[in-house]
Simulated scan of single mutants.
Amino acid sequence: MADLPNLNPEALPAIDSAALGNPVARTARILLLYGSLRPRSFSRLAVEEAQRILERLGADTRVFNPSGLPLPDDAEADHPKVVELRELASWCDGMVWCSPERHGAMTGIMKAQIDWIPLSLGAVRPTQGKTLAVMQVCGGSQSFNVVNQLRVLGRWMRMLTTPNQSSVPKAFLEFDEAGRMKPSAYYNRIVDVMEELMKFTVLVQGREDYLVDRYSERVESAAELSRRVNQTSI
């Protein structure tokens, strides 16, 4: 089990899938994305803390390293890093997005990752109906610009975004020399967000198709079926 010196294990029980009305839910798969390539990237360190917490809660996790990912439209979709990212997006049940705030917005590295994940891959929609938790780290005072932007993108990607979120101000003060987050209310908030993400993910598992089944698409499908039947009968 991951080393979690800041965590009170008695206060963080395992997620009870039966209590959420979905006792057959399998191990939740969570993909974590971060938005900086600096050697001491605080968004990466925050994601690594989130990963440890998620694994404590029973998740199967993967962290995508964006180093080497080309800019959108500057390479073909068969680029190895693009293929890796898209396969992970299809593999997971939910995601964590964490970006630094740069010039009042998420970084280009963060946005490029999201832009490479399409709304559809053939008949598969790799993000629709999946869960999402959003986080940001700040170089100065606390801000919510990035998490608000990430929420907009999550809705656009048809993801179910958790109500809670994390914003860590003056992140350079919140991590020790080993890269571990110090005990604080900000650390506890990340625990809150990851616990909420896991609950939402377990709640949704196996029900995604029903939750995103839309009237407008059913009407469109019925019209297309009628058109084909009429063409066949002519």
Rank of each mutant, 00 (worst) to 15 (best):
N22L: 10
Q205L: 05
E177T: 10
L54H: 06
R62M: 08
Q205G: 01
P66F: 05
P80C: 06
S221N: 11
A2G: 09
S226V: 13
T161W: 03
L121C: 14
D192E: 11
A105F: 12
R44Y: 05
E174Y: 09
S99A: 09
F172G: 12
V146K: 04
L225H: 10
E177S: 14
E101W: 02
E208C: 01
R207M: 07
A77Q: 11
V63F: 07
R40T: 11
S216M: 15
E208T: 01
L121Q: 15
F175C: 07
D16I: 05
A75Y: 02
R38F: 00
E10P: 08
T107D: 08
L150T: 01
K130Y: 05
E10G: 13
T232A: 14
Q205S: 03
K130G: 04
D176Y: 04
C92G: 10
L71E: 06
R151T: 01
D93R: 01
P118N: 12
D176W: 03
K130I: 03
P100L: 08
P72S: 00
P39E: 13
E208P: 01
S99E: 06
D115A: 11
I117G: 01
R62L: 08
S167Q: 10
R180M: 06
N145R: 14
R125H: 13
T162H: 02
M1D: 15
R26T: 15
E84I: 03
T161E: 09
S99R: 03
V212W: 08
G68K: 04
S166L: 10
D115N: 12
W116P: 00
E217M: 12
L57V: 09
V212T: 15
M95S: 07
Q231V: 12
L45D: 07
R44H: 07
I190F: 03
I190H: 01
L121E: 15
M1N: 15
W116Y: 07
G21H: 05
C138E: 11
R214D: 14
G122H: 13
A59Y: 00
I109M: 12
D74I: 00
S166D: 06
P5D: 12
M157V: 02
R56T: 09
L7M: 09
F200Q: 00
F42E: 03
P72L: 04
S143A: 10
D93E: 10
V137W: 08
A133K: 02
M159T: 01
S226P: 08
V229K: 11
L121S: 15
E196R: 12
R38C: 05
A25M: 14
D78Y: 04
E84V: 03
L54N: 05
P13D: 04
L132T: 00
C98W: 02
A11I: 07
